[in-house]
Amino acid sequence: MTDVKELIQGKIKTFGNNRTALMPILQAIVEDKNHLDEEDMIEVADALDISTADVYGTATFYTFLDTIPRGKYVIRVCKTISCHMAGKDEIFDTLKDVLKIKEGETTPDKKFTLLIANCMGWCHKGPVMLVNDDIYTELTKEKVIDIINEYQEK
């Protein structure tokens, strides 16, 4: 984990010391530690001279800018119609079984968080899921188990 202050300053250098830097900063923090905590948001507010409520309000607008702790690997299963028809329910149930958590929860070892999300732009290859930035398409029960196993070992 990088120091949040450094991270913020780095982004400010690229994007400027104004509000247009906010999204890149928040994205970088989330990429680094998978969520934004209170201190992070205070740091950001301080650096850009905006209110903490504003930072929080902006972050909570965006699904990917989590303000609650997440696991190392955030799994997002597409629930929208094409994937729904292609069998996302089975995929989701499999994940719940394998990880022994429910929607929105994180495994006790803080490795995985299981979320449902809206269409991810792979509707012709549903069901699909994202694990952090990586996309997995045309999922089957077996494929999902393999993928999770791989991540377990990482």
């Binding site: 905006i50 209110s51 409520a53 929080y56 309000g57 909570t60």
Partner: peptide, 10 residues
């Protein structure tokens, strides 16, 4: 100029 209140979530 305080912004103690903000809109959150969507």
């Amino acid at each position: 100029s305080i912004s103690a209140l903000a809109v959150i979530n969507k």
